[in-house]
């Protein structure tokens, strides 16, 4: 029996009697990160990284039974050694290292290798079996450098400010929004956030991440002049009456899907910024090679493509089933899902 197996409740470790990011209620869940499709409510006990605790609580409620470990610290679960390492995805995101009788598995969860000032950088862990996500597992996805990208965002904001119009930037409320806030140049103008974003800003600040000063839109007068302001809002705010107060504004959407012109047009915003919290194609390959794993299991996105490509490269690769598979999800830029759950990160979002 493999150390981890796909079951109807989720990825299960029989030896340790725990699940990783299960999607139905279980007695013990090890959680990679607090995005909604990974951290579901209803489990009896949670184990997560110490930096994740704040955001997890905003997600699961104060009463959830959450146990934490520091990055690198080992916890024995029924004789199975479990430890968490930074995944570079969002605050508190972790890869789960599982060791039992000399065999090591690493479940990456969602990850990226790119620079992100709001969370610890991805750490490559040697293992026998590496479980990798593949949201952007096609060679068309290559991210720009942090400087080039935020240079473009700052340029857009200051050009709008000069033209006397507000800049509304849509991005997922958890992770993406804080990365934006921490990376833009706050000297250009005042920064405002949608309530859904501000809740998570608080968790980040409580965890010691310094963010520039932000104000909640609901806190200022409706007649406020936003012409020099940057407003960070979840994608679900697009096209709602909430937007009216900004008067003349330019809008933009920050997401990895914005790499594709068709997706940019479908979003119907003035600008698409290619900003993702997932690994691009070169990073996926880099992380897989760095793990030195004998076997790679692919999940969460472009599964058949990555499996076939890795096999052709001489790497033993297989698909790992999850509940949210399907090409449709990964390609649709989450426009429908996002409307319901603004800050959800799933196969169909971020």
């Amino acid at each position: 029996m493999a150390l981890l197996e796909h079951t109807p409740r989720g990825l299960y470790c029989a030896a340790g009697d725990f699940y990783v990011d299960p999607w139905r209620p279980v007695s013990r869940a090890v959680i990679t990160h607090a995005h909604a499709d990974h951290a579901r409510p209803g489990h009896a006990a949670y184990l997560a990284s110490a930096p994740a605790i704040g955001v997890l609580k905003t997600r699961l409620g104060a009463h959830a039974h959450i146990d934490t470990v520091a990055y690198g610290e080992t916890r024995q679960l029924n004789g199975v050694a479990v430890s968490l390492y930074p995944a570079g995805h969002v605050l508190g995101s972790a890869q789960v290292r599982i060791e039992y009788r000399g065999e090591v598995w690493v479940v990456s969860g969602d990850y990226k290798l790119d620079y992100d000032p709001t969370c610890d950088a991805f750490e490559s862990i040697r293992c026998d079996t590496f479980v990798s996500e593949s949201t952007f597992g096609l060679p068309i996805y290559r991210w720009q450098t942090h400087d080039a990208l935020f240079g473009a965002i700052n340029h857009w904001w200051s050009a709008n400010a000069a033209a006397g119009r507000a800049s509304v930037l849509f991005g997922y409320a958890f992770g993406k929004a804080q990365r934006i806030l921490k990376s833009v140049d706050p000297t250009i103008g005042p920064i405002f956030c949608h309530g859904a974003v501000e809740v998570l800003n608080r968790s980040y600040r409580d965890a010691g991440v310094v963010l520039p000063e932000t104000q909640m839109v609901s806190e200022v007068d409706r007649k406020f002049d936003y012409s020099r302001a940057l407003i960070v809002a979840p994608p679900s705010a697009q096209g709602t009456p909430w937007m009216k107060r900004f008067g003349d504004y330019s809008d933009a959407f920050a997401s990895g899907w914005m790499a594709i012109r068709g997706a940019r047009r479908q979003r119907n915003v003035d600008q698409g910024f290619v900003l993702s919290d997932h690994a691009d194609w070169p990073s996926l390959l880099k992380a897989i090679h760095a793990s030195e794993a004998e076997r790679v299991l692919i999940t969460h996105g472009q599964v058949p493509v990555m499996v076939r490509y890795l096999r052709e490269q001489g790497i033993e690769a297989d698909a790992l089933e999850t509940e949210f598979e399907g090409e449709g999800g990964a390609e649709n830029d989450g426009s429908t899902a996002a409307a319901v759950i603004p800050d959800q990160d799933s196969a169909s979002a971020v």
């Binding site: 096609l138 594709i260 012109r261 068709g262 076939r308």
Partner: peptide
């Protein structure tokens, strides 16, 4: 085949080539 998969995801030949 991987180029074709990419093209299928992008839907535009000129763009696929530029990205890849």
């Amino acid at each position: 085949w991987l180029f074709e998969e990419s093209y299928d995801a992008v839907g535009d030949l000129a763009e696929t080539i530029a990205l890849i």
